[in-house]
């Protein structure tokens, strides 16, 4: 009965204090299609009067529950949980979404299938203890990308055989007599010149302008290194040694410059440069044939 009285009040003429009192109760009307229309007039946060019309459809969802289960939902919690509100609330810790779709002929997944094979391969490699003598990588020395440019790591001097040759001792034949052991034909006395022919001559020119960069962060990328070194000259090649299995950097890289002068400058400047929380060490790469 309050509505007609309120209707007589013209809100436009009303003063501010009466505004709140002038709000009519929400009007609910039933529609033909079973929905309800609710018209509400209220004052929003800005103090403005707002009319809101909502259409609502009510659906009754019936849910059957075992009375025992329903009773257990009301149990008071016990033990370490004592004192907490009874029954399951709405807090839930959900794990990541896991796909589970039963299927005929399930075969332990594509990637699961492959993975053990990879592991086998890696295991086999580990068993054989393949280690490149040049870059210490887990490949054969002959497959090393630096076989022609770098000396085997940790071998500064020329191989023993060579020293023997230089000393004038004469190892003859394939199986060297004396201390030398096997001497490759091109190093034997009277062999093809002093240096012999070498394969992969195209790397020769890099020899003088290649830097060996060590103490590289394992998260380094080739492009990052290229960015650093290109500031000092034209870089022809960047090689970052990566672990086959993990794909992470192994901690060293080779950078070749077109010009030796650039390489020398870069060597000077980048040596000691901090990159990826580590300090780079840069030096000229050792030549394969020793010096």
């Amino acid at each position: 009965m309050a509505t007609p009285a309120q209707k007589t009040v013209d809100w436009a003429e009303d003063g501010e204090p009466d505004l709140a009192a002038a709000i009519p109760a929400p009007q609910v009307s039933k529609n033909k299609d079973g929905t309800e229309t609710v018209v509400t007039i209220f004052i929003n946060e800005d103090g403005k009067k707002v009319k809101r019309t909502q259409r609502i459809r009510r659906t009754v969802v019936k849910k059957k529950e075992n009375p025992r289960v329903a009773e257990r939902r009301t149990w008071q919690k016990i033990g370490l949980e004592a004192g907490k509100p009874a029954g399951p609330g709405d807090t839930t810790t959900l794990g990541e979404n896991i796909m589970f779709k039963p299927m005929v002929g399930f075969k332990a997944g594509g990637e699961q299938e492959k993975a053990p094979e990879e592991d086998k391969k890696a295991d086999a490699l580990k068993k054989m203890q393949i280690k490149c003598r040049i870059c210490m990588g887990d490949h054969f020395t002959t497959k090393c990308p630096f076989k022609d440019t770098m000396a085997p790591a940790g071998e500064d001097a020329a191989p023993v055989d060579m020293a023997a040759v230089e000393n004038g001792e004469t190892p003859q034949g394939g199986l060297g007599a004396g201390a030398g052991g096997y001497v490759p034909p091109h190093l034997r006395k009277g062999g093809a010149g002093t240096t012999g022919e070498r394969m992969g001559g195209k790397f020769e020119r890099d020899d003088l302008a290649t830097l060996r960069v060590t103490n590289v962060s394992e998260f380094a990328e080739e492009n990052d290194l290229r960015d650093i070194f290109e500031r000092h000259g034209r870089v022809t090649r960047v090689f970052l040694a990566k672990d086959r299995e993990t794909g992470r950097a192994k901690g060293f890289a080779f950078v070749s410059y077109a010009d030796r002068a650039d390489a020398a400058r870069a060597c000077e400047r980048v040596d000691g440069y901090g990159y990826g929380h580590l300090i780079l060490k840069v030096e000229f790469a050792k030549k394969a044939d020793g010096k």
Binding site: R73, W75, K77, I78, G79, L80, E81, A82, G87, P88, G89, D90, T91, T92, T93
Partner: peptide
């Protein structure tokens, strides 16, 4: 535990 949402009902000490 409640199986519906994983809330702990209690412990038995």
């Amino acid at each position: 535990w409640y199986s519906a949402n994983g809330e702990r009902f209690g412990t038995y000490k």
